[in-house]
């Protein structure tokens, strides 16, 4: 049982640390991507309007 306890402790610490890093990365990078996405959709919409 003590081996399993050690395994789950290590797994938990590693997974949680990785998730914290991911949360920060995706928050910053995601904000940039949202702006890019909206700009592209805005561009698409004006292209559609000019085609009409």
């Amino acid at each position: 049982m003590s081996v399993w306890i050690m395994i789950w402790k290590v797994v938990f610490v590693i997974a949680l640390s990785a998730f914290a890093v991911l949360a920060v990365g995706a928050t910053i990078g995601g904000a940039r991507d949202v702006v890019t996405l909206l700009n592209k959709l805005k561009q698409d919409r004006s292209n559609t309007k000019s085609d009409q």
């Binding site: 990078g29 940039r32 996405l37 959709l41 559609t48």
Partner: peptide, 29 residues
């Protein structure tokens, strides 16, 4: 508010296939 951008089916169900990696990770999570 973003309803104004859903002009065709590709945009409505696929967000115009323009999602970047980080936004993809955030939205999938």
């Amino acid at each position: 508010w973003v309803k104004q951008y859903a002009t065709d089916m590709a945009a409505y169900i696929g967000a115009g296939r323009s999602v970047g990696v980080w936004l993809g990770v955030a939205t999938m999570t």
